[in-house]
Design a protein around this nucleic acid. Sequence first.
DNA 1: TTAGGGTTAG
Length: 445
Amino acid sequence: MTQIHSLVITNGYLNFHKPNDNKWMPTLLYNAIIRAYHVHNHKKVLDIFTQMLSNQISPNTHTFPPLLKSSHASVVTPIHGQALKRGILSDPFVLTTLLVVYARNSRLFCAQKVFEEVPHFCIVASNAMINAFSMNGNMEGALKLFRRMCYRDVVSWTTMVNGFVVNGEFYAAIRFFGMMMTHNDVVNCLVKLNEATYVSVLSSCANLEGKAALDFGRQVHGYIVVKGVDLGVFVGTSLINLYGKMGCLNYAVNVFRVMVVREVCTWNAMISSLASNGREKEALDLFEKMKKLQGLKPNSITFVAVLTACSRGGFIREGLKLFGSMSSEFQVVPIMEHYGCVVDLLGRAGHIQEAADIIRNMPFQPDESVLGAFLGACRIHGAIELGEEIGKKMLKLQTQQCGQYLLLSSMNAEKERWDHAADLRKEIVESGIHKVPAFSMVHLT
DNA sequence: TTAGGGTTAG
């Protein structure tokens, strides 16, 4: 990439207008380079754009989409200004990209303002705006716009279903999918469901508990089979995830077997399913197979899955070995989740000191998930002093989840250290953390 | 040459 770039520069194409050249030539070249950097090394895109301007080459409508998508949040507004200055702010491609980028940076109001500038009804911009609302937690706005649209396509419907999923409204997602299936748009074959639609609805089923969600997911699976939809990576992985979460391991294995193309995420879903259904050893075997037979490179999520398998299966040595190999062998830098797994791994087995050492040597501050795993272990194995040290740290974090503090308090109580237990409860109250009252629900049909 | 929706962990 850099070599091609240098070649173009040394040939002088990017620096001046040659008299008889097509005057758009430098713009086209810059656009091509910006697009290529956007894909391969997006941090350099702004530099190239600056260079373009300093060489007095005019950007056009094709310059802005990859430039905006590569840019840091802090430069979106100045680039917006540039587009305005260049008189290309009525272009739907530029406007839609701006809208998407503002929404991605949680600037919903700016996204809405940009959307209002789109001169005519544009299905792509409208769908992008629906997504902007959903990603910023405003499903009401998304629904209002969806209803107002003069026509909708499969992306409009799927974006709505997915919006409910990312906002945790799984029942609403399933209901909306049901509406979609009976709507004229679909019934009259104006809109054909695609992989993304199935993925969104399967994901909402997987996030629910109970037989009803499993049955619905199986119906969707049946529909996919009847319609002769190829089991692509996305749909296949979603099905494995659904069956794995629902405890139907055999179904998950069957889907995994018939899939022709499997990517890392597919293997991750299968490894996780095995790990969470009591087949930890098979999860680790599959991990070996993935590396050796398929030559695939495990990613961050793969390691969460295998470390979970080790933790649940009590494979301490294997787990520590895997954790140690992450950076050195696979260039995967451990993040909070991995530390959580290792602390859980050691803690469950009663290696409290080693778990504490891991926490002390973390390159960043542990969060409540890591400390919580440790505290749980301290409680089970009666390590009161260490538990207190970590518990105090958690109080300093001032999170609003009180479960773990109460756990610490009960630890003291169990050991009949009532004064400590009482002090801790007092500290909890003073730090403004509230206990969420437990509740149960009865579903009336 | 350009814009919109999707899978995997806890």
